[in-house]
Each structure stands twice: as structure tokens, then as C-alpha cells.
Write a protein that binds this DNA or RNA. Sequence first.
RNA 1: GGAGAGGUCGCCUAGUGGCCUAGGGCGCCGCACUGGAAAUGCGGUAUGGCGCAAGUCAUCGAGGGUUCAAAUCCCUCCCUCUCCGCCA
Length: 436
Amino acid sequence: MSIGLARLREEPERIRQGAIDKGEDPSIVDAALALEGRRRTLLGDSERLKAERNAASKQIGESIRAGAKPNGPEVAALRQASTDAGARIEKLDAELAATEAQLEDMLLRIPNPADPDVPVGDESANQVVRTWGEVLPKDVAAEGGTWTRRPHWEVAADLKMFDLERGAKITGSGFPVYTGPGSRLQRALIDFMLDVHTEEHGMTEVWPPALVNAASARGTGQIPDKEDLMYIATRDELYLVPTAEVPVTNLHRDEIFEADQLPIRYAAYSPCFRREAGAAGKDTRGILRVHQFDKVEMVFFEKPENSTEALEWLTARAEVILQRLGLAYRVLLMATRDMGFVQAKKYDLEVWAPGVERWLEVSSCSNFRDYQARRMAIRYRPEPGAKPELVHTLNGSGLALARTVAAIIETYQQADGSMEVPVALRPYMRRDRIGN
RNA sequence: GGAGAGGUCGCCUAGUGGCCUAGGGCGCCGCACUGGAAAUGCGGUAUGGCGCAAGUCAUCGAGGGUUCAAAUCCCUCCCUCUCCGCCA
């Protein structure tokens, strides 16, 4: 992912301001601009010499064909000229390569400027755009007095829905084992979400590999920036996906679409593996922060003029899932310093978990505009025969399972310790309640 | 894992050191012919960089090497296909 050179030259001010808004050092923008000037000078010099060398080589061929002796003085002089040019080219190209590497490194450190309607500031500037559903209280009034909603891990332990201790035994902490009704709930949720996105929202279902190669990890920016976030199978140089975004976005790396093929909208299930380095000791109870979880991800490839609208639609598709599940949630418009380096605009969906009395992030819906597409060279032809342009990419969870499961358990728990099954999931669960 | 074959401009294919700045066919686009169409004919038809432009440079799976010159020769790697072995 990176900023485009053309844009860097055309609107450095906006990019500089974008960096400031995201809390990054804007001086890289000027440094990159200077390097870009140097690159063009070197490139011009090198190409002029290459043209000379090519001409000389061609002339050697023509002379020999015309009858000159291959070892005669005429050919020797041409050969010398070509060799000399070659030596200078070698030096120039080495310098050029170094300059380009440096430039690329800098471009990678210039963030994608946020859209104009994104609030500037840190997380305190995040805006709650809308809320849906009833924010349930922890204490519930009932005929026989009151009862208190418990955290999901207590309910789940009684209902034998997952087993964290044995997960820790066989793998490590943060690797839950879902059992019995908990296991079926996983299956039901994945099925339900994919059905809604494909049959009702018209997305194409994808079931991608859970490991990707280095080129793919680089494409979506997992390496080199977020390498310590991922599990790596070093022996085979493969990376366990932290989200289906990685394999699915890479589906179309180095491809050119015709305009009538867009938009392309995928819904993909995958397990997600995250080391969560730096989060040790946070959210250790239950399944609020785990190293392996399941997720249905939406990934869109759009024409640039439609991406703004597409983000709203995508976010609303994730909301449909929460609404069908009957879970209270709120939509946050993330502020510049809280939204991430590569996003132009991002909404987070947070679901209310009444047992732990917290808003849990279950979806993050982003528009990357052309920033991600540039790195992966994903383009389209606006008109037949026209010059290819970068597409816009978007993605969003729809939804992440573990936290959604926690919210379901805490929302649907009953006074007697059992759990009601959300109506939308009953056909998939083939039961109305868990326990009793 | 072993043996063999192969990766060329959307698809098929030609091309064993210099008229290859890659030829032909199919498909596609434009024009001509036609009442309209088919057939036919003519022209066009990769991507990226630099340049106001003319143009120029790079790319024949990827990377490196030999050479004045590489699709072509050498080395390493990747992928596909066939056969064998192993296997959910």
C-alpha cells in the first residue's frame, strides 16, 4: 500500500496535512518529493545511455550483415562504445535502484489521507453515528425479585459451550475449544451469515486458504508493517491469515477488470489467527480476545466513483446481521488518529454485551480507496480500450464470531441459567434453547 | 517425494544469439462493402516508467549470469501438466 507518485507531485499539501491528521511525521512527504526528483533525473540519464547502447548493438548487427568483418576495426569501435555505455549504465542503475528503494520505503511510511468528512483527532473524537436495539441492563427485574446477567464465560461453562482450560492444554491460552451446543453455534453463525450475504445481499461466496505466501502478505501490508501480529510457518515461508481480507483481496492481485465486471463483492469465511502481541494480560477472561477465531469477511472491488457509497452499503450489510440476531449495537465513525494508517474512512460496529457491560468491537468496515489497490496493482478499464486505472477496495467484517458469540450468550441468557437461541439461528441450530 | 514435459502480447501458437522495436491465427474494436446482416477486405488491439511531444526505456513465469547484443545460451527458484510413490 502506498500513496501514488502522481498524487504526491500534484497535491503534496493535502498529503502532508493527511499525515499530520493521522499523527504521522509530515516531513517524509518532502523527503519523498526530493527523492522523486532525483529518481527522474537518474532515470533520464540511464535511459539516454541505454538508447545509445541499443543503437550501437543494432549497428553491429547491421554492419556484419552488410559484410563487415566481425573482428574488424569498424565493429571493434562500435563494440567499445557499447561496452563503455554499459559501464556507465551499470553505475547509474545501481544508484537508481538505491534511490527507488529509498523512495518506496518512504512512500510506505506516508499514510492514506482520511476522507474530508472524517473527524480529526484521537479516539475521543470518534463519533457515534447511530445506535440500534435496547442496551440491556445487567440487573433484571423479575416477578420473584431480580437476577443479574452473568458474563458469557460463566453461562457457557454451565452450558458446556466451550472449554478454555483444555484449549490451553492442547494449544495455549486464547485457543478456545467449542463443544456441543457451542460448536453448533459456531457452525450456525457461519452458515447464517454466508446465507444472508450471498442470497440476500448478492455477494459471491469464497472459501480461501488459511495460509498465504509472502507476496500476498505483502500485498495487504501485513508484512513488513504488522509481521509480529501474525503466526508464521517459517519452514515453508507461509503466513497464517489474520483475516480473510488477506487471501481474498489478493485474489485479484495484478489483474485488470473491464468496467462491466465491477463491482465485485465477496463474502468469505475463514479462521483468523492473531498473536495479539502487546495485548498480554488484556481481556484474559472468556473469548473477548483470542488467538484463533472465525469470521465472515466482506471484500469489495469498486469503481472509484462508487466507493464512498459502497462503504455505507457494506457497513449496513454488517448491521443487518446484528439486527437479525437481535443484538444492540452502535456504529462509530473513527477519527483520524484512531482509524489506522491505510484507511481513508472507517466505521466500527460495537455490540452491547450486558454481562460484562461493555461495547465489543465485532466489525470494522473500511474504504481504502486506491491505496491498497496500488500496491497490488488491481485495476480496471473505465471504457473498453482505455488506460487502466486503480480500483477502490473496501472490506468489513460481517461478522467476527467470538465476540458476537459472547454478546449472544450474554444477551440471550435466561434467569434459570439456560440460553434462548436467537430466532434467526433456530433453523440452523435446530433448537430454540440451550440448557434445561 | 521421484521421473518426464512445459510456461511467449485476452486465448492458441511461431520463434535455438543480431532484419524479433516478438510473426501468424482466434477473439475484440473501428472503417469499407450491404437494404440490413453474414462472408470478405483494410486498419487497430499488452503493461508500466520518463517525456509537452516526437519518442524512448523496461518487461517473453521470477531472479541472477555469459555477450557489443538474450524469448533464444548457463545457473537458481516458482508454477502447470503426465506418470509413479505417499496420503485426509
